[in-house]
Simulated scan of single mutants.
Amino acid sequence: MNGVGAIGASMGTVQQIMQMRAELIERSATLRELHRAQPVSPQGAPGIVGAPGAVQPAGASFAATLEAALDGVNATQTRSNQVTEAYERGEVTDIASVMLARQEAGVAFEATLQVRNKLLNAYQEIMRMGV
């Protein structure tokens, strides 16, 4: 095999890779701009129970913490519904943002469901304890 031919072929491949890299960087910048444009709730990332902004001050009751987490999940699902309806009306053409909102709402709901299951198991365990 000719070494020069192999180098020439790899240069074409390198140019293709560099072009794909530039496209990915451009797409990434566009996604970052879209992410910055989306409103974020004052509690940090909506629907995420462990979000840094969702930390309750010391002395906050468990009920208040749980209520704040559920409000975040509700906000995430409401936003998902709004984006989905806007897509159905033709106002939003970016299917990626619609799917991302739906997945975010799904993950938030699943996390809430897991927390509920753990709380229910803890309650049942406490009820089985002897006095």
Rank of each mutant, 00 (worst) to 15 (best):
9 A>T: 09
102 R>Q: 07
45 A>D: 15
95 I>M: 03
61 S>W: 00
130 G>N: 06
67 E>D: 03
127 M>Y: 11
96 A>T: 11
43 Q>M: 12
26 E>D: 06
19 Q>G: 03
64 A>K: 11
90 G>C: 00
113 L>Q: 02
26 E>V: 14
8 G>E: 11
8 G>D: 13
109 F>P: 03
28 S>R: 00
99 M>Q: 13
65 T>G: 04
4 V>H: 03
66 L>H: 11
115 V>K: 04
6 A>I: 08
2 N>I: 09
101 A>Q: 02
72 G>A: 00
103 Q>G: 07
83 V>W: 13
74 N>G: 08
108 A>H: 00
98 V>W: 00
35 H>N: 09
5 G>R: 12
34 L>A: 10
97 S>Y: 05
116 R>Y: 01
42 P>K: 14
7 I>Q: 10
27 R>T: 04
68 A>Y: 01
40 V>R: 09
21 R>S: 05
69 A>F: 05
109 F>H: 09
49 V>S: 07
87 Y>E: 02
84 T>N: 11
129 M>Y: 13
23 E>Q: 14
128 R>S: 04
58 A>H: 06
6 A>P: 00
107 V>T: 11
104 E>D: 08
95 I>A: 07
16 Q>E: 14
72 G>L: 00
4 V>K: 02
124 Q>E: 02
22 A>W: 02
9 A>L: 03
128 R>Q: 07
5 G>H: 15
70 L>M: 02
32 R>G: 08
56 Q>V: 06
61 S>G: 07
39 P>L: 04
85 E>N: 07
96 A>C: 02
104 E>A: 04
21 R>T: 12
110 E>F: 14
40 V>A: 12
14 V>H: 13
64 A>C: 01
22 A>D: 10
38 Q>T: 12
87 Y>S: 03
57 P>A: 08
127 M>S: 10
25 I>Q: 15
107 V>R: 13
116 R>C: 09
2 N>F: 05
129 M>H: 08
92 V>E: 01
95 I>S: 08
115 V>N: 04
34 L>M: 08
70 L>Y: 00
89 R>K: 10
84 T>Y: 06
59 G>H: 03
4 V>P: 08
120 L>W: 01
79 R>I: 05
97 S>H: 06
32 R>M: 08
41 S>G: 15
20 M>F: 15
46 P>Q: 12
108 A>V: 00
101 A>T: 01
123 Y>H: 12
94 D>S: 02
71 D>C: 05
91 E>R: 04
68 A>L: 01
101 A>F: 02
67 E>Q: 13
107 V>M: 09
110 E>R: 09
114 Q>H: 13
45 A>H: 09
116 R>V: 15
16 Q>S: 15
44 G>V: 11
114 Q>P: 00
